[in-house]
Amino acid sequence: MTHVVTESCIKCRYTDCVDVCPVDCFHIGPNFLVIDPDECIDCAVCVPECPVEAIFAEEDLPQDQLDFIRINAELAPEWEVIDSSIGSLPDAEEWKDKPNKRELLER
């Protein structure tokens, strides 16, 4: 199994999770992070670090977030690896509690 970044990360892109990852499985996009399922070792140390609770074990994903398994797998090879935090997006605080951000995901 792997961990998956979900919709809550969109337009926030907090990078606290990146600092604790022992295998550098996070990849960074314009307004979202993804986890490379081939690199993730399912250690779960990233989960409590996410201020918007956007990271789930694959088996614990809410039903309405299942498509993020595919999204993470699809975007990880296209985006650059990030191995240290860089802070959140400038307007992250405005977006952190907003639902229905899927269509705002920039590829």
Rank of each mutant, 00 (worst) to 15 (best):
H27M: 12
D64T: 03
E59H: 04
D83A: 11
I71T: 14
A54V: 03
D38H: 07
K11F: 04
D60K: 00
L61W: 01
A44C: 14
E7V: 04
N100W: 04
N100F: 08
P22D: 14
S88Q: 11
T15W: 09
F68G: 07
I86N: 03
V81E: 14
V45K: 01
S85P: 13
E49P: 02
W95C: 12
A92L: 07
D36A: 01
D19N: 14
A57E: 15
P37E: 13
C21G: 11
V47W: 02
V47T: 10
E106S: 07
D36K: 00
D83F: 02
C40L: 05
E80C: 01
Q63K: 07
P90T: 08
W95P: 14
Q65F: 09
I28N: 08
A73M: 05
D36R: 00
D60M: 02
T2H: 15
P77N: 12
S84T: 10
I86T: 10
L104V: 04
V52I: 04
E59W: 01
I86E: 13
V23A: 09
E93K: 09
H3Y: 12
P22K: 06
E59I: 03
E106P: 01
D19S: 11
V52E: 13
Q65G: 10
M1T: 14
A76I: 02
I55V: 12
